[in-house]
Design a protein around this nucleic acid. Structure first.
Length: 455
RNA sequence: GUGAUUGUAGCUCAGCUGGUUAGAGCGCCGGAUUGUGGUUCCGGAGGUCGCCGGUUCGAAACCGGUCUUUCACCCCA
């Protein structure tokens, strides 16, 4: 049988793991610098926790886990007979792989509310799974790195998260990212003003595609969703909103002056933009983007999305927003949350494409003892033990060389693994023949000298 | 879910309009070198040409199906 792995999954080899670890560590350190603490939740949840939280499309993309045992036995025969997949699914599967980290977190908060001190700041770095069709930068198993705060409605949180994005991407050397920001209340206000409040989702989804399918494409899509030409005329100024964040906000304020909700949204956005403008960002740009709609139906206030530098063709490398009532679904009312997510796998692809992994080193042994004869074996083992106790990565080539070629193979092994120091021989008076592979210099030394040299 | 695309040695790929025993480079193993590498030379092993079926005297090549790869749409990190 030919070995293979499922569609949309990947193996990670040592160099890839080293690079991924570097990103993880950078994100983790920044999360902690901002005061977040880690939690972890199970890979799979009860289906009822996840289903219905991500919209119809989301439900389709959730990996369901088949019940154990004779799972068909209890299913209603007529459902099976009529091949009603959706209804049968809920009877034969009661667990599902997590689809993101936000909903499991909301569940966690409600379940552990008595142990939590609010505002609660948590971060979480774990894989998620989506039964999507893979393509560039899209996998069926990938990591999200989330930071969320629940229990505070302060807009300072929004400001904090913009800075957090900027801090992480700056540390990674990824310059020129764009943090797009919008506010759900603005979208809602626009829909209200033009009289399509009942079609908010269709409206925002269509608007979101402006930079992709253009003005005409958006109009066509809106018409097909039953939004009237009259209404579209009223929003058409949106299609051409240009200029600085302040200009855009002024234009929006004018358009939304009759909508209380819309005006609130503009005010919130203005506060965040002004504060960030005062604080300054290192490498990122904060950009008001009215067309940013990000599907997730639970966002109620700010919406974030991070775009990679323009020269890289890649979907968003981060996203997030404020949700006022996510925990409400699980029975805890009036707890506002806000959070952001980093898409590790896409960030990896972007850094790779831009050649920003130079500094990442593979954990490779520093000292290798060749195995050319079995004399003084115990001295060899003692030396390795001493080196390791001094935190020097060391190892002995396991197999004894029986021929010239096999010796050659050991030297080659040292090269291929990038070992810097090689010991080829130990004298009877415990002198080590030490060779520095970077310059070819070779000399004899005692164990103490050896440790000092390679340290 | 929709539309394209890919599939030949461990890896990267050749293989002209269907015609004998399917090739190269790298890697691997062995040797030249009584034994110090990364840049020598020689030899060797290794392939049901994704799978199933069809067309043909003859298929890696043409046709159909299926799986797989990659890309776009939908949606999303």
């Amino acid at each position: 049988m030919k070995p293979s792995i499922p569609k949309g999954t990947r193996d990670f080899s040592p160099t890839e793991v080293a690079k991924r670890t570097y990103i993880f560590n950078t994100i983790r350190a920044t999360f902690e610098a901002f005061g977040f603490q880690p939690i972890e939740t199970p890979s799979f949840e009860n289906s009822s926790t996840l289903m219905g939280k991500y919209g119809e499309e989301g439900d389709r993309l959730i990996f369901k886990i088949l019940n154990s045992g004779d799972y068909l036995k209890k299913v209603d025969a007529t459902l099976l007979e009529n091949k009603e997949s959706n209804k049968v699914t809920s009877e034969i599967s009661e667990k599902a792989l997590r689809y993101d980290l936000t909903v499991p977190f909301a569940r966690y908060v409600v379940q552990h509310q008595n142990e939590i001190t609010f505002p609660f700041k948590r971060y979480q770095i774990q894989p998620v799974w989506r039964a999507d069709r893979p393509q560039k930068g899209r996998f069926r198993e990938f990591y999200q790195c989330d930071a969320d705060v629940v229990g505070s409605t302060s807009l300072l949180q929004e400001v904090d998260f913009v800075q957090l994005y900027d801090a992480v991407f700056s540390k990674l050397g990824l310059e020129g990212t764009t943090i797009k920001i919008n506010n759900r209340k603005i979208l809602s206000g626009i829909a209200e003003v033009i009289g399509v409040k009942d079609k908010l989702i269709d409206f925002t989804v269509a608007l979101d595609k402006l930079d992709k399918i253009g003005k005409e494409g958006v109009v066509t899509e809106m018409l097909s969703k039953g939004i009237t030409e009259d209404a579209i005329d009223k929003v058409s100024p949106l299609f051409d909103v240009e200029g600085s964040n302040a200009d855009k906000l002024a234009a929006l304020a004018n358009m939304l002056k009759d909508s209380e909700e819309g005006t609130n949204g503009v005010d919130e956005l203005r506060f965040v933009c002004d504060t960030i403008a005062n604080l300054g960002l290192q490498t990122a740009t904060l950009e008001v983007d009215v067309t940013l709609a990000r599907g997730l139906n639970y966002y109620t206030g700010a919406i974030f999305e991070v775009a990679a530098p323009k020269k890289v063709k890649m979907g968003s490398i981060g996203g997030g927003g404020r949700y006022d009532d996510l925990t409400g679904i699980f029975g805890l009312k009036d707890v506002s949350g806000i959070g952001i997510s980093f898409g590790l796998d896409r960030i990896y692809l972007v850094l790779e494409e831009l050649g920003l992994f130079e500094a990442v080193e593979l954990p490779t042994p520093k000292v290798l003892f060749l195995n050319f004869d079995s004399a003084n074996d115990i001295e060899k083992l003692k030396a390795v033990k001493a080196l390791r106790e001094n935190n020097i990565k060391s190892e002995i080539y396991p197999d004894l060389a029986m021929s010239n070629n096999q010796q050659k193979k050991q030297w080659k092994y040292a090269n291929n693994r990038g070992v810097q120091y090689v010991i080829s021989k130990i004298d009877n008076d415990c002198k080590f023949l030490l060779k520095d592979m970077t310059n070819g210099e070779q000399n004899s030394c005692t164990l103490t000298e050896l440790i000092n040299t390679v340290q």
